[in-house]
């Protein structure tokens, strides 16, 4: 296909409950659509190849890497970015916990860390085991080891992992089903 024949298409994305009608090429990633076309720069571009997790967003509540996604594939889905986590001006419990426990230094990976942890906890609540779970069928403890394994798709170059793990405990421990 030559450059003159580029296909531009209309893509309607529902981001943080707001509809955005975008005119984009099919090759535009969900990450670039969010940042460059919808003007939502909270979601960060780190490696752009699925290795760092800075671009993590929630689609219908499920965490994904927006760099590995074509925007057009997510038409009509419910996309939540870091900008959409606060409710009525009140920070999400995990956002507050990140501040409380120094879950960051430079902050670049933070939106991805927070969106990822929100999705991760939903997976835990659904009973999804992890590679470090003792059992594939029984109860799983919401331990540091589980959190680290489940969050391995999010890198923090500043090394704020201890604070991140504490923040996740702080925000979710009370909700863990026993």
């Amino acid at each position: 296909m030559n450059e003159n024949e580029r296909q531009t298409i209309s893509v309607n994305l529902k981001i943080n409950s707001v509809n955005h009608a975008l005119q984009i090429e099919p090759r535009v990633s969900l990450l670039d659509a969010l940042r460059e076309f919808a003007g939502l720069t909270g979601t960060k571009k780190g490696c752009n190849q699925g290795a760092c997790g800075a671009c993590t967003v929630l689609v219908d509540g499920t965490r994904i890497n927006s760099c590995f996604a074509l925007a057009v594939q997510y038409e009509g889905r419910d996309i939540t970015t870091i900008e959409g986590l606060a409710e009525d001006g009140e920070l999400h419990a995990l956002q507050s916990a990140f501040i409380e426990h120094d879950g960051f230094q430079c902050g670049y990976c933070t939106p991805g860390q927070i969106c990822s942890a929100v999705g991760m906890f939903k997976e835990f609540q659904r009973g999804l085991p992890s590679a470090v779970s003792e059992t594939m069928t029984g109860e799983i403890e919401f331990s540091d080891e589980e959190i680290k394994e489940r969050m391995s798709g999010n890198l923090c170059r500043c090394g704020a992992y201890v604070g991140i793990t504490e923040a996740i405990h702080e925000a979710f421990d009370a909700e863990v089903k026993r």
Partner: peptide, 23 residues
């Protein structure tokens, strides 16, 4: 899958990351 083929659940969970496994 978890009950009949635990080896398969373990293999899935050994691969990639939470985000990538969701995609």
């Amino acid at each position: 899958v978890r009950e009949r083929y635990p080896v398969l659940t373990q293999a899935f969970l050994a691969g990639a990351t939470g985000q990538i496994r969701n995609m």
